[in-house]
Each structure stands twice: as C-alpha cells, then as structure tokens.
C-alpha cells in the first residue's frame, strides 16, 4: 500500500487490470452511490466471468444493468435483485445465464465488514428458521439462535464518494454513502469515483468517513486541483 494514491487519470486506466473471474464489490443502493463511470469503464474493458456483489442487480439499462447485458457477469451476490426496472437481470436469470446468491441486506454488509476487519466469520441471528439458513452452521448462544456467516472479500471494489483529498481520504453525500465505506475495506484493490478532489488537508479529519488506507485509486469526474474546493 502506498500512502499517496497514484493519480490514475481516467476510469479506463483505473479498471484496466481487472481480470476475468474477479470478484468485484460494486457500491450503490439502486442508483444512489452507484459508480456508473467505473462500471461503464469495466464494461468497455471487457473482463468476463465476473462475480459482482451489489445490493441490487441493476436498474434500467445503464450502469450495472449494462454490465450484465454485456454478458460479463457470471454470478451476482445481492439482497434484492427483483425490482420494477430490473428487466435485464430478470431475463438473464430466467434463461439461466447468470447465477444468483441472495443474502439478507444486513448480512451482506456485515460479511464484507468482516472481510475488511479480519474476522473469520460471525454468528448472525438474521435468517434463522428461514430457507436462507440451509447449509449454514447453527449455534445457540445465551438462548438465542444464530447462523454462522462467512466473510465476503472482493478482489476489487468500485465505489462512489462525494469528495476525496489527494491522499484518498473520502467523504460521502447523504444516503449515497450506503455500501461504500464497507466495500472500501473489503477489497484487495479499492477504486473510487468522486465528484471532486481537494488538496491534502482540505478535508476536516473529524469528518473523514473512509480513511485513505483503504483507497488505492481515485478517479475524479469533476473538478480537481491542488488548492481544493469548497468543503
């Protein structure tokens, strides 16, 4: 890990080394926080047989949905694939062209948190007594039933933040934060799309949500400059 992230230029350069078969954690809850520029770059790059982790399975025809439509995704791990505008996933799933692993939303987040925090697994009460408990080790602790859930690490995380400084410290904006901070910790290589890059020191250290240690590459879609911009 380098203390100062290398300026990767554009989104295409940032995702250039993603290999076929990689597990890619993709941020966003619906469209909020979805790193569309990075996903589009991954689509142009053409890596195949990807395992994608996201809360959903694409909306409309753009972003993650377009990556699915391009046939680059072998499996999606998500909590809520079925939506009114998930027609691309729906078609692929029904015709057996993409595998699906459904994980409760909080368990999905916590499995990635565990991966990023060096936790080998955790006992979780969510899903006990349901079809999603099948095949999982169960344990009763202090009279309550739990399931063993395993960490979910990524080879890459593609996330969106509001603003980065030149070290890669991140702040987010409103509910677009969602999975970003957790995914940033859980991937071997974290690539962030931001709207603005400000000078090192221009972010209030008390307000930094994702410390730079988790960030490898930043792609700026908006203004960038050594003097930074408005906070």
């Amino acid at each position: 890990m380098i203390a100062h992230y290398r300026d990767q230029g554009g989104a295409d350069e940032a995702v250039a080394d993603v290999p076929d078969g990689a597990t890619v954690l993709i941020g966003g809850f619906g469209s909020a926080g979805q790193p569309v520029e990075l996903i589009d770059a991954l689509r142009r790059q053409g890596a195949k047989e990807l395992v994608v982790v996201n809360n959903n399975a694409g909306n409309g025809d753009h972003g993650l949905a377009a990556l699915l439509a391009a046939g680059q995704v072998a499996k999606i791990i998500c909590s809520f694939p079925r939506q009114v505008d998930s027609w691309i996933f729906d078609d692929l799933y029904r015709s057996g062209r993409v595998q699906l692993e459904v994980v409760p939303q909080g368990t999905l987040a916590e499995r990635m948190r565990a991966a990023g925090a060096g936790i080998g697994g955790f006992y979780c009460p969510t899903g006990v007594g349901t079809p999603l408990a099948q095949g999982k080790e169960a344990r009763t602790i202090d009279g309550r039933d739990y399931l063993l859930e395993l960490p979910l690490p990524g080879d890459y995380a593609l996330i969106k933040a509001h603003r980065a400084d030149r070290m890669g410290n991140l702040v987010y904006r409103k509910t677009a934060r969602n999975f970003g901070p957790v995914m940033a910790t859980a991937a071997a290589t974290t690539i962030v799309q931001v709207g603005q890059v400000v000078a090192t020191g221009a972010l209030d250290p008390e307000a930094v949500v994702t410390p730079s240690i988790y960030v490898d590459r930043v792609v700026c879609q908006g203004q960038t400059g050594p003097e930074g911009g408005a906070q």
Partner: peptide, 26 residues
C-alpha cells in the same frame, strides 16, 4: 438523487438527521 429511502423514493432530511453506512445501519 443522493437522498432516498429504502423504497428508493427521494425524501428530505429533518433537523437532527444522521447518515451512516450499511453495516452500521443493520
């Protein structure tokens, strides 16, 4: 578009609101 609820409907924030990531939320 950055401020939506779980149904993906745009909402407003009230005084005293707080944002947090998914692992904290659950």
């Amino acid at each position: 578009p950055d401020l939506i609820n779980a149904g993906k409907i745009p909402v407003i924030e009230t005084p005293g609101a707080a944002y947090f990531h998914h692992a904290d939320s659950f």
